[in-house]
Amino acid sequence: MMGFIAVLSIPSIIQVLVQTQRSNSEYTSYKRYLSTHLHMLSWYSYELKPGSKSWRSLETVRKRHLRAGTTARLKNQGTVSQRDLSLTIFGFMGFAMLKPDEFQITQLKEGDLDAFVHFWGVIGSMLGIKDRYNICRKTYEETHQICQVILDKVYTPCLTNVPEYFEHSARAMTVGASAYFSNIEANFVIYKTKHLANVPGYIYTEVDRLVLLRKLKRCRCK
């Protein structure tokens, strides 16, 4: 959920989403992100081969992206670029890659993390991301480094100074999603997203608070 919220902070992405009018209200957000959730479940649950449920799902999502990009271009509202697709893949797996402890994710056996990277690399390729733009590389280590750069250079700045419509879209998404994830609340999800993205001041644990205090002390000393 936090990854989806983070993606809304990318100006070029939210510009396209707004013009589709499929995420502007609680009801349309509910339909859109329930659909996204069900698509993702099919990717995890069914073998990816021609004609399978996961294969058809990915074809459907790719066609939607192409239509959204075409419509946006016709309206002079941007497009769905390779950069945007790559940043969207980060929304699915980036926080889990960089901060697995936040989600209680652990490697049960050797190779699990490499398999996770390979899985999302294939998903990205199926959605139309060219190899040079695919953030999931051949190794876990390289992918981790790329995700860290994306967080530092893109998501932290974008979530520090969010674009127009971010707040409205994020709340609409969260309220809509609460129909099937009943234990989520908009203020918490947005706060937690900014915490995960290392937005200054968004502390969550006592350790975070102590780290912030040490940084403030160093600043005062200077």
Rank of each mutant, 00 (worst) to 15 (best):
M1W: 12
G3Y: 12
I5E: 00
I5C: 12
L8V: 04
L8F: 10
L8Y: 13
S12R: 02
S12L: 02
V16P: 11
V16C: 02
V16A: 03
Q21T: 13
R22A: 04
S25C: 07
Y27I: 07
Y27F: 07
Y33G: 14
L38H: 06
S42T: 14
S42L: 03
Y44K: 09
K49S: 05
G51H: 04
K53G: 04
R56I: 05
E59Y: 06
H65Y: 11
L66G: 03
R67T: 13
T70W: 12
T70R: 08
T70C: 10
T71N: 11
K75A: 10
N76H: 05
Q77V: 12
S81M: 09
Q82V: 08
Q82L: 00
D84S: 11
D84L: 13
L87Q: 01
L87I: 00
F90Y: 08
F92H: 08
M93N: 05
A96I: 08
L98C: 08
L98P: 01
E102L: 09
E102P: 02
F103P: 01
Q107R: 05
K109C: 05
E110Y: 14
D114N: 05
D114M: 10
H118A: 05
F119M: 01
W120M: 03
G121W: 10
V122G: 05
G124D: 01
G124W: 02
M126F: 14
G128H: 11
G128Q: 04
G128E: 02
K130D: 09
K130P: 05
D131N: 12
D131K: 15
R132G: 09
Y133V: 09
I135M: 00
C136D: 02
C136K: 01
R137A: 07
K138W: 09
E142I: 13
E142R: 06
T143V: 03
Q145D: 03
I146K: 01
C147K: 00
Q148D: 08
Q148T: 12
I150V: 14
L151G: 02
D152V: 04
T156L: 06
C158P: 06
T160H: 07
N161D: 09
N161R: 15
S169Y: 09
R171I: 09
A172E: 01
V175Y: 08
G176N: 12
G176M: 06
G176P: 04
Y180G: 05
S182N: 14
E185K: 13
E185M: 13
N187W: 13
N187R: 09
V189P: 06
V189E: 04
K192A: 10
H195E: 11
H195Y: 11
L196T: 04
A197D: 04
N198R: 07
G201K: 03
Y202S: 11
T205A: 08
T205R: 06
V207S: 14
V207L: 15
V211K: 07
L212V: 06
L213Y: 08
L213F: 11
L213R: 10
L213H: 06
R214L: 15
R218G: 12
K222M: 15
